[in-house]
């Protein structure tokens, strides 16, 4: 069984009970179909109740859930003939950012995303989705390529943030992020970003300064992690729940603030409980927004993208 969240422990218990019953049923002892049916309805109802009322901090936990679909999963299910591209052409390949070309509903596109990795080996390989400068430089390279060939860009954002390490600093982490954002605001083709899980500050916006910003229902997007904010402003990281609330990092808050263009609803109980349904919903939303943007001439596209940021919060 995968990672358990505290606030759904009672549901997990019901799910465990269902599994037990199924097991005994398969051993042919008693007829348990009715019982399983009843429990399943109960699970469904309770999941709905819990997930409708998630607190901002609980959303942070859901957004970080290890079984949520990752960038590579979205690519595998949404992109045909995917051709992964690698390397920053200067120093190294950074697997914290994955990306390449392929077809989305038959049209060529460029896709990039943060990949956190699925198991221990994967997580180490992908550095838990925390890019070093070479990752951001690869992202920049891919976005520039998309511009050259007028390919629409799709990005899947899911990172705790840029990697805070000695090596990353020595190779110019700040500059690498800045250049990646610059590539985003320059690219003369449609660009849709989806925050699928954790949108962690500079590391996230490096590939998210797009024409359209979509967010999954239980994803979060923030200038700083609630823990980091709490330890700075409250001098105590245990205030993370208050910080999560104050920072307004949920898809719902950000939609009210006018930051997102669409909140994509997740299957009951969160994206981690039903990958195929999540892929369908994300795929539909992407298709719709890329179609809209495809009708806009490149120059106007960039102008609109700039105005989106320039006008923000001006009195």
């Amino acid at each position: 069984m995968s990672q358990q969240l505290d606030f759904e422990s009672h549901i997990n218990a019901l799910e465990a009970r269902i599994r037990e019953l199924r097991l005994s049923a398969s051993e042919g002892e008693i007829d348990v179909a009715d019982e399983i049916e009843k429990l399943s309805i109960k699970v469904e109802t309770q999941l709905k109740q819990v997930y409708q009322k998630l607190t901002p901090w609980q959303k942070v936990e859901v957004s970080r859930h290890e079984s949520r679909p990752h960038a590579q999963d979205y690519i595998d299910h949404l992109i045909q003939e995917y051709q992964p591209l690698a390397g920053d052409r200067a120093f190294a390949e950074d697997a914290a950012i994955v990306g390449g070309m392929g077809y989305f509903f038959g049209k060529p596109c460029m896709v990039i995303g943060h990949e956190k990795g699925r198991d221990t080996r994967g997580r180490i390989k992908h550095n838990f989705g925390m890019p070093r400068p070479e990752g951001f430089r690869k992202a920049r390279r891919l976005i520039d390529l998309a511009g050259k060939f007028h390919l629409p860009v799709i990005s899947f954002v899911d990172t705790a943030g840029a990697y805070p390490g000695l090596d990353a600093e020595a190779r110019g982490q700040a500059e690498a992020i800045a250049r990646s954002i610059q590539a985003c605001i320059r690219v003369p083709s449609p660009f849709v970003a989806v925050i699928t899980g954790e949108g962690g500050s500079g590391g996230a916006i490096a590939i998210a300064a797009a024409d359209r910003l979509l967010m999954l229902e239980h994803a979060v997007y923030s200038v700083i992690s609630p823990e980091g904010c709490a330890s700075i402003l409250w001098r105590d990281s245990s205030h993370r729940e208050t910080a999560a609330k104050s920072l307004q990092i949920t898809a719902q808050s950000l939609n009210e603030l006018g930051i997102t263009d669409e909140v994509i609803s997740e299957p009951t109980g969160g994206a981690h409980r039903d990958h195929p349904a999540t892929f369908r919903r994300v795929s539909n939303a992407l298709k719709r927004h890329l179609n809209d943007l495809g009708a806009i001439p490149a120059e106007q596209l960039i102008e609109q993208r700039w105005q989106r940021y320039l006008k923000l919060n001006t009195a």
Binding site: I185, A209, S222, V223, I232, I249, I259
Partner: peptide, 22 residues
């Protein structure tokens, strides 16, 4: 760095300021 008290609005100043340099 970014002003935490403005949350996501402060993060949006990254692309915004880059557009200014652009």
């Amino acid at each position: 760095g970014a002003r935490m008290q403005e949350g996501i609005i402060s993060l949006m100043q990254l692309p915004r300021s880059i557009i200014a340099t652009e």
